[in-house]
Design a protein around this nucleic acid. Structure first.
Length: 425
DNA sequence: GACCGAATAT
DNA sequence: TATATTCGGT
């Protein structure tokens, strides 16, 4: 209760002309150099600064150590956790103003940051003057709370007290809700509702968007799969998911997108069972199975198509010199478990991003025919193992799949000839 | 009036 | 692009 009993910040200083010294700022940036610089500036502004390069550490400080911060500054994309997640967990969940700082002045990202509840989005490098002014956000937040409940005094920092209360119940697995409702900017509205206060002057904030995290989407899929075709309607899925964060509308919207995705996949043939045949293996003792052929990839694997193949240690571009089918075994790309050492291989879109495993066995490779028409670097060797493949032909981020190269396949075996082409039609 | 889902908005 | 909201229809 230290921070509560002994508020360092005389923010009630509407009649005070002193700068609010000692605001507690938590700074998060995975780039240690940027972080040090940021800390320097913040200290110059006479804020009380805690800093970490790790998002988990920040969450731990707040959750486990119950540290109270007046403001959080985080960058956008992190290795271990997306900046927007931090925003949800710390900012929206805890009702602490969050500032996002990012390397570039990407308007799209800025808008997204604001849409997801950031108070301010600053492009790097952040200047001293900008940081000096962030105290205004804290004051504004408290004023808005005061409007919801005029009896509260700014000095007493009601936000902090409620905040502490919330913290105790926020689970470590980074769920965004507390009790049986979402803790987010909706709180202001809820407070009004619960207190029967109708305050037209208070700017009622929009509730933040649902973030369909991997976990949440998995839950959705589970419900979707359990339900029969005719039962897969928003309300039923909602009931099955039994998640207080969600409304029927959230699910309806996601369902619409999911159906759309399925339809597109179907149209492009992704996931369609192609052939299951032992073909083109030079080494008959070990076979590969060619299946789950994807017309999508077929379509783009014409002359000049480029693929990026990664194995976790590096990427190589593979340019198809003629129509070819790129992989012996094709699986939809899987999200790695959180604790895996997998790397992120797609763009910054969390919905599609994922990782891939290290090659499972690098003791053998494809030593055969250098006559391949696929210019897969100068060695024409591919280590056996699991890879990610990303189509870069159509521009943009490309679509990612995971694949498995098995022992016994030469690069030649990956080529598609007329016979195979027909099957794909 | 509930609620589905395509269309549209943000 | 991802998610929210609207709105005609059942």
């Amino acid at each position: 209760m230290e921070a509560f009993d002994n508020p360092i910040i005389p923010l009630e200083a509407e009649e005070d002309d002193q700068f609010p010294i000692g605001l507690k700022v938590l700074a998060i940036d995975d780039d240690i150099v940027c972080l040090r610089y940021l800390v320097q500036l913040l200290e110059k502004c006479q804020y009380k600064v805690s800093a970490t390069t790790r998002a988990e550490e920040a969450i731990r400080l707040i959750n486990d150590e119950k540290q109270i911060f007046d403001i959080v500054i985080t960058n956008v994309v992190r290795h271990d956790m997306d900046g927007f997640e931090i925003l949800q967990i710390i900012g929206v969940g805890m009702d602490i103003p969050v500032i996002m700082v990012s390397a570039n002045e990407d308007l799209k990202m800025m808008k997204r940051g604001l849409m997801e509840g950031a108070e301010l989005y600053l492009p790097k490098p952040v200047g001293l003057q900008e940081l000096k002014n962030i105290w205004q956000l804290v004051l504004r937040k408290r004023l808005s709370r005061k409007r919801s409940n005029p009896n509260l005094l700014l000095l007493e920092q009601p936000a902090v007290e409620e905040h502490r209360h919330s913290l105790e119940r926020v689970t470590m697995d980074q769920e965004y809700y507390v009790g049986d409702h979402i803790v987010n900017k909706l709180d202001d509205d809820n407070d009004n509702y619960n207190n029967n206060i109708v305050d037209s002057s208070s700017c009622s904030k929009k509730k933040p968007r649902i973030s369909w995290t991997k976990e949440l989407h998995a839950k959705f899929i589970e419900a979707y799969e359990i339900l029969g075709e005719k039962e897969r309607v928003p309300n039923n899925i909602l009931k099955h998911m039994n998640d207080p964060r969600l409304t029927r509308e959230n699910v309806a919207s996601h369902l619409q997108k999911h159906r759309d995705t399925l339809r597109k996949k179907k149209e492009s043939g992704v996931g369609k069972l192609g052939i299951q045949k032992k073909l083109y293996d030079k080494n008959q003792t070990k076979t590969s199975t060619l299946y789950n052929s994807m017309n999508h990839m077929n379509k783009v694997s014409n002359l000049g198509s480029q693929f990026l193949i990664s194995n976790g240690q590096g990427n190589q571009t593979w340019t198809a010199a003629r129509s070819c089918y790129p992989v012996p075994e094709f699986k939809p790309f899987n999200f790695p478990p959180n604790n895996s050492t997998s790397r992120t291989c797609d763009d910054d879109n969390p919905y599609y991003s994922g990782g891939f495993d290290e090659p499972i066995n690098n003791s053998s490779y494809y030593p055969n025919s250098l006559e391949t028409n696929c210019g897969f670097n100068s060695t024409s060797q591919i280590l056996v193992g699991q890879y990610a493949i990303e189509n870069h032909t159509d521009g943009g981020a490309g679509q990612c799949y995971q694949m498995q190269f098995n022992a016994g396949n030469s690069l030649e075996s990956l080529l598609m000839d007329g016979e195979l082409s027909d099957i794909f039609k």
